[in-house]
Design a protein around this nucleic acid. Structure first.
Lengths: 214, 214
DNA sequence: ACGCTGTATCGTACATGTACGAAAAAGATT
DNA sequence: AATCTTTTTCGTACATGTACGATACAGCGT
């Protein structure tokens, strides 16, 4: 089947977009997060600065795309990680997640700590899962724990609570590196163990279905 | 004792600083967080834009100062809140904290979710407590719980863990209002109850004293 | 081949934070 | 009072994100 004209054009557009992303990635590698400016990026690919806006809504959009790549890699790494016990598998998620956040604070920030304007056009929850492959892994492994009888309750609720604890832990460590948490790894492990131990003793009801406010 | 010249000058400087803060506060009230620009602020108080930098290191510094005021008010509100049971007193902290964060996302953001550059010159932990009156209240109430035998372990460690959970919960609600948490209040309450219940059953050891890694 | 239409590209312009150093003001010293 | 020193104020300039609208250009029908 020959590509329709429209398809070809879209492909071309996608190519240029990823060329821009490549250049952006390199720029960040070479000059750090602050080093990425629209003008430099445009010059790098031989375009006028404003042309970048044909491919990305704004600078945040670029940063998001870069960070999303990084998170996808993380998700793959987690999936590839061996884990016999379902609870251990969950611990791997938390640990790797934390290591990633601490090792890539800029990416973590742009995805989880910056102002969001995107009102999701379609189904919010599904989007959330599509958008973040991590959430998928997390829920899968929670479900495995529930199936194995190690945890009890609604997987979505459990996953969300784990996310809240994990995110709180990591974002505090990122934002206040000088606060006396003691050893970062140890603090992460403590929070993880604490939460899993607590979850092991409780049956977690589903989240209330009150419509999203805001 | 008459004021020394130096003191008088410092006072004058402090006055102008707070005049600037007042103007900034009004600007934010009138035009929103985005409405606060250095140029507008300077014009408001009849100064040249660059003069603002004699009183604040940068724009963030202004936002911080504004947010710090708001947090102080919150701390006072919490302290004034009646609470018979020490655990209930702790719940009040969490609840009010959450309500504040959800009601003042901008202030919450600037204090807890923005890049920090300040390397604390003196003792880090003490600064942390001075800087944030909330942490003081939190630790006090945790200590009360420990004293009453409702909780067991190191107060600083317990407070830090509560902070991590509370912060994770609130910052997720702020950043992802469209994620299906269900009812926000209910989610906050759930996380709070979950954590306190878990803490009630564990003896919390002090945090490791490994030097801060940054 | 020739115009038509929509899209990709980009030139210009503006608001913003803030670096740098000059100018002015205040204070100290003689 | 006069001069020197220090601090405060601010004029200018630059890098940046991006709004707006013009231009060039590709694909289409005739």
């Amino acid at each position: 089947m020959p590509l329709s004209v429209q398809t070809r054009r879209e492909k071309q557009k996608a190519e240029l977009r990823s060329e821009l992303l490549d250049a952006a990635h390199k720029l960040v590698q070479e000059e750090g997060y602050e080093g990425l400016t629209i003008r430099k990026l445009a010059k790098r690919v031989g375009y006028a600065p404003m042309s970048v806006y044909s491919y990305f809504a704004d600078k945040q959009d670029i940063l998001f795309a870069l960070a999303a790549d990084a998170f996808e890699t993380l998700a793959k790494r987690i999936e590839d990680h061996p884990a016999d016990d379902p609870i251990e598998a969950l611990q791997v998620v938390m640990t790797e997640y934390a290591a990633f956040g601490l090792g890539n604070p800029n990416e973590y920030r742009t995805v989880f700590m910056t102002e969001k304007v995107k009102p999701p056009e379609g189904r919010t929850f599904a989007e959330m899962q599509e958008g973040n492959p991590l959430m998928k892994v997390l829920i899968n492994r929670v479900e495995a724990c529930v199936a194995a009888g190690k945890l009890k309750g609604d997987p979505h609720a459990i996953a969300t609570m784990l996310w809240a604890v994990g995110h709180g832990t990591i974002s505090l460590l990122i934002t206040f590196p000088f606060y006396p948490f003691g050893d970062q790894q140890a603090f992460v492990k403590r929070m993880c163990d604490f939460t899993l131990a607590a979850l092991a003793t409780q049956d977690v009801p589903p989240l209330t279905e009150t419509p999203v406010n805001c």
